[in-house]
Amino acid sequence: MSSLAEVFNLQLLFDVLRMTTPILLLALGGMITDRAGVLNIALEGLLVFGAFAAVVGTGMTGNLLVGVVAALVGSGLLSLAFAWFALYLRGNIFIVGLATNAFAAAVTTYASWLISGREGSLSYPQAPTIGPISVPLVKDAHFLSFLSGHTVIDYTAWALVLVVSFVVFRTRMGLRLRAVGQEPLAARAVGLSVRRIRYLAVLASGLLAGLAGAQLSLTLGGFVQNMSAGRGWIGLVASIVGSGTAFGSAAASLLFGATEGVANSLQITAPKVPAQLLFALPYVITLAALVFYSATRSRKKGVLDT
């Protein structure tokens, strides 16, 4: 039987941070679009598209930077398409979002097959993977050593928490973004272009999702069908549970990342627990968080209260 110490060690903390990164990036994107009044159903598809584009970009050139840029461009373009359908053509955002997700899943699977001839995966043997960066000092400080050895995207994600928080709450753009999300009609009366601001918000979430995708596939060194494993949805939940702030989203992402890390770790240390159950853990926690969140929010009055 596993002891608690075996489960909770520095390796686990390291894994938790690693697992948190994509969720965190997605949650930041979800928070930005949510602040603009757009429910970003398409995060999952944007993530998949980014992961795929990163692998293709890196594989064809052998250059990681090209892969990351490809992920940003790919997810960015897809997010603009999503925004165009939802905001300009006024499609139902749920339908358009689900269609975007289905499109991304299908088109990446098909393209993988076209390129590699194998079904469901794509990798380039010579392609590099994103390597760890060791942080001087920190890596030797025993208790903090889990903070060292992450990828450049991991560190960027945490820096982006600060950047996003600053932009949304301190700048002119951020003020307008929040205004548009809160009272779109009033914002229009002030002379703001609601649609333009929402486009930009969706684009920002696309770029963040692209970066998340790059993190997923470039650390693994290939693209696998379903490698996103619902992280787009978990990221969306994290942004909601984070109640519209960058730091709240980061905290929620950390919770979900931790669940994933613990689930992985338990697979090794507690082999008797069915793996399927452990795999389900992150989703169960996500659902629980969502239920808890709604319960504490709306336990006010009767059913008709909106």
Binding site: R170, A187, G191, L192
Partner: peptide, 26 residues
């Protein structure tokens, strides 16, 4: 029907759309 933003402050509501800025910050 007022076209105001309930969660923003009085000052933010009034300057919105033509905000004074300093070093990129409002």
């Amino acid at each position: 029907h007022f076209t105001l933003f309930p969660a923003l402050t009085v000052a933010e509501n009034i300057v919105l759309g033509d905000e004074p800025t300093r070093l990129g910050q409002v």
